[in-house]
């Protein structure tokens, strides 16, 4: 049995759902960022699967994946800086206590 597109799409869907679960349920702010990285990687896996199976001569999906990797790196840097700043401000990383915007 050869590798199919559906295998990669199912794997990416599973990774995406795990990432969403972690994004919602985790209370440590750093773990929330890790879950966002999981989500971006799931999308990247989708893009690479489509690029290989539907568009093998113009590999535009790989170009998009490189852009997604770039944006993910920028997002990780800024997100961790924000976490450090809010940790200095509130002295905790608990997501439930970041209620500065709650009236």
């Amino acid at each position: 049995m050869e590798l199919q597109l559906q295998f990669f799409l199912l794997l990416a869907a599973a990774l995406f759902c795990i990432g969403i679960y972690g994004l919602i349920t985790s209370r440590n702010a750093v773990r929330v960022l890790m879950s966002v990285e999981l989500l971006l990687n799931a999308v990247n896996l989708n893009l690479m699967g489509f690029s290989n199976f539907l568009d093998p001569d113009q590999i535009k999906g790989q170009v998009f994946a490189v852009f997604v990797i770039t944006v993910a790196a920028a997002e990780a840097a800024v997100g961790l800086a924000i976490i450090l700043a809010i940790y200095r401000n509130r002295n905790t990383v608990d997501m439930e206590q970041f209620n500065l915007l709650k009236w």
């Binding site: 590798l3 990669f8 794997l11 896996l45 690479m48 699967g49 690029s51 290989n52 093998p56 590999i59 790989q62 994946a65 490189v66 990797i69």
Partner: peptide
């Protein structure tokens, strides 16, 4: 998995 998808650079 990317290597399995013929994408060595990525």
């Amino acid at each position: 998995l990317y290597i399995l998808l013929n994408a060595d650079f990525v």
